[in-house]
Simulated assay, not measured.
Amino acid sequence: MPIFENVLKKQIDIKVIDSTIDYKNYVPLDLSAKHTDELDLDLTDADKFEDFVKNHLSQNKAKVAFGGYLEHRNLYKRSETFNDENTEERNIHIGLDLWIKAGTSVLSALDGKIHSFQHNLGLGDYGPTIILEHEIEDCTFYTLYGHLSLESLEGKTEGQLVKKGEKIAELGKPPINGDYAPHLHFQIIKNLENKKGDYPGVCSFKEVDFYKENCPDPNLLLKIN
């Protein structure tokens, strides 16, 4: 396994939302295009989407639903953000989603500092977003936290130090969070490509190899299952 992925795997006791919720209370959630088509799930209505997530949690006696890394989704068809007529459709999710109610605490995965933050406006985008910078064993990398509350950006400064497990934000509600059911989009990024406050969380099929290398599976760090 590459050196960086080994660095991630060596980290322990990592939580990025409410530290009181044990991973045994997490349940997978399949939002692949095939599955949502079979369910005839309306992905354009944030309230119906949230009801679907709540029902999934209730049926599984769980508190958090998770999943989505490298998942092919229809979730983005409603937004021009991912469907520009001049480029290939972006529908491969390259982060990990953690679905739970708005207002849930969002935590820094590791010691680091605030690299950048901004409100990414637009239907289907991240909404309020924070990117942290970390350095472990001479590896510099970034973690992105998307779909936050607008208040989460207040009082933040670039370079501000954060500690592992420190509360850095709260999950936002639709439509501020990009108009999704409340959840955290968590992503690991090796090369931020000079971007600030934003980085693609969805890619096209032809870009998968690059983003799979640049954005490894967040579960290497979280170890949910």
Rank of each mutant, 00 (worst) to 15 (best):
M1V: 09
I3E: 10
E5M: 06
N6S: 09
V7I: 13
K10Q: 14
K10H: 13
I12W: 01
Y23G: 10
P28R: 03
A33Q: 13
K34Y: 13
L43D: 04
T44G: 06
A46G: 00
K48G: 11
F49A: 04
V53Q: 01
A65W: 14
A65T: 10
A65H: 09
A65I: 13
Y76S: 07
E89H: 13
E89C: 09
R90A: 15
N91C: 12
H93D: 14
W99S: 11
K101P: 09
A102F: 05
A102K: 07
G103I: 06
D111G: 00
D111W: 04
Q118S: 11
Q118K: 15
Y126R: 08
G127T: 05
I130H: 01
H134L: 09
H134D: 06
E135N: 11
T143E: 02
G146S: 09
E151R: 03
S152E: 12
S152M: 13
T157H: 02
V162R: 03
K163D: 12
K164T: 04
P182V: 11
L184N: 01
H185R: 05
F186D: 12
I188G: 01
I188H: 00
L192N: 02
N194H: 09
K195F: 02
P200A: 12
G201E: 05
V202L: 07
K206F: 08
K206C: 12
K206H: 14
E207N: 10
V208P: 08
K212E: 12
D217Q: 08
P218V: 07
L222T: 03
I224D: 05
N225H: 08
